[in-house]
Amino acid sequence: MNKINTAYIIDDSHIYVFGLSKIIETYKLCNNLMVFEDGEKAIRHISDNLHDNTVLPEIILLDINMPIMNGWDFLNEFAKLKSNISKNITIYMISSSIDPEDLERAKSYKEVSEYIIKPISISRLKELLSAA
């Protein structure tokens, strides 16, 4: 099992990000964790490092509801960049929305591996970060 090198958290909830980071650090689930509070900042980081596979993440934990650029907008922008990226990036959408519309919409993006409803348990997090 290869340990994840880099993971992104894209979420605007400070509390959630704090908790998630703490768990990931404690269980050493990845070497390098990067946090973005909206999709735009993450996209900017990806497009600045398109060919640098050591900086690009293996996994993205993506929220839906965010200011400036929400999860859906992020996916649209990401899809445009994808052909320039050689690294295999797995995206999990993590939201507290149980609206079937959101679930269906997530399924329509082939970039999204899974839609996970908050809260996410420690064991589930371990699973996700080791599967990649």
Partner: peptide, 14 residues
């Protein structure tokens, strides 16, 4: 559901 769930989730996580 969304609003209560997110608070409950955060509480659980904390």
């Amino acid at each position: 559901s969304h609003n209560l769930r997110s608070h409950a989730g955060n509480l659980e996580m904390m």
